[in-house]
């Protein structure tokens, strides 16, 4: 079980800020495929991975990163702070 968080337009497109996900995915990319298969809103949010960033347990990571032992996966667009 992993906690999946969404921010900014990813949160708006999926329609919720966080959810618990039962997954057998080995990597972030596999988790994304599982989510996309769920419903069109996930498909829409994850349509272009180059427009997305991912953090594993609050550290930026790559989409091919393994998620074994990870508690929190967050998806969001490139950051615009400052």
């Amino acid at each position: 079980m992993v906690e999946v968080l969404y921010f900014a337009w990813v949160r708006e497109r999926i329609g919720l800020p966080r959810e618990k996900v039962e997954t057998s995915a080995a990597t972030v990319a596999e988790l994304v495929e599982e989510l996309k298969a769920r419903e069109p809103r996930y498909e829409a949010a994850f349509a272009d991975l180059s427009a997305l960033r991912v953090a594993l347990d609050q550290d930026l990571a790559e989409f091919d990163a393994p998620i074994e032992g990870v508690r929190e996966v967050a998806f969001f667009p490139p950051m615009t702070g400052g």
Binding site: A55, F76, P78, M79, T80, G81
Partner: peptide
């Protein structure tokens, strides 16, 4: 801070 701190 502009591109590595998670603000949108």
């Amino acid at each position: 801070l502009k591109s590595r701190a998670p603000f949108w």
